[in-house]
């Protein structure tokens, strides 16, 4: 039994060690690390930060970045009431139809709609941004290693280019972007927006809040997942003990 456990442990550690580094090497600078409320076995999303982050997204990021996988109705998860959700949705216009005459028409958004993209397609997005494509942000937190820290680091990582680097026109220097040259100009400035809850809107605060919001946007079911995980693993621990006792009992006439 002991040998078995040791073997399993060794196998697990060895296999995990082998798996982790399936990522790129390169001159990646170590990301800033924030103690997020949503990390860890029992972490939950900071609702206040997420609501502020939504405001940052809508007032700053949505000019160029879509969020097309997120339905307005899911904002209820963040503590918005049904009326607040409908109001947010109604601020956007969607093309619908055809009507009975065969024409398309515009209508205000409903809770069942998803956040739109500011551009009709990728080509229009690139044309409007010097060839660079502002990615949809619905999954950005999961599509980068250590996504929440990456978003926060990137948004607070704009610095002047060092003396030995000449930036091509239209590029900006960022410590945390791969290759350090990013087409997106620094999107955040102190007091750029006025938070609904009165929190001072520093770059640091906005970067933090939008990172929380985007983490939720990428993984809205995280809290249910962790909650179920706790119940399942506790149940399995009890099951393991009971099954082990039964195994010992059945095998006792042989030992």
């Amino acid at each position: 039994m002991r040998k078995f456990l040791i073997s399993v442990g060794v196998a697990a550690i060895v296999s995990l060690a082998a798996l982790g580094p399936a990522k790129a090497a390169g001159d990646a600078v170590e990301l800033k690390s924030v103690a997020w409320e949503h990390e860890g076995l029992f972490g939950t999303y900071d609702r206040a930060a997420a609501q502020r982050g939504l405001q940052v997204y809508r007032e700053v990021c949505a000019a160029c970045h879509g969020l097309t996988l997120v339905s307005f109705r899911t904002l209820a998860d963040l503590g918005f009431s049904e009326d607040e959700v409908k109001a947010i949705a109604a601020e956007y216009e969607f093309t619908d139809g055809p009507d009975d005459f065969g024409d398309m028409f515009d209508r205000p958004g409903k809770a069942s709609d998803k956040f739109p993209s500011p551009f009709p397609n990728e080509q229009a997005a690139r044309a409007g941004n010097g060839g660079a494509f502002p990615v949809d942000l619905s999954l950005v937190s999961k599509s980068r290693p250590n996504g929440d820290n990456y978003i926060y680091s990137l948004l607070t990582g704009y610095v002047d280019a060092p003396a030995d680097v000449t930036l091509p026109a239209g590029m900006n220097y960022n410590l945390y972007f791969a290759g350090h040259q990013i087409a997106m100009p620094p999107p955040l400035m102190d007091d750029q927006i006025e938070y609904a809850d009165g929190t001072p809107a520093t770059v640091d605060q906005m970067a933090h809040d939008v990172a929380v919001f985007l983490s939720w946007a990428a993984e809205p079911k995280m809290e249910q997942r962790k909650e179920m995980g706790l119940k399942v693993i506790l149940f399995l621990l009890i099951l393991t003990v009971v099954f082990y006792a039964a195994k010992r009992k059945i095998w006792s006439d042989l030992h």
Partner: peptide, 15 residues
């Protein structure tokens, strides 16, 4: 012994 088996079987069924 029977209780243990019933417990094991019951937990397994519930799971």
């Amino acid at each position: 012994r029977d209780f243990l088996y019933i417990a094991a079987g019951g937990l397994g069924a519930v799971g």
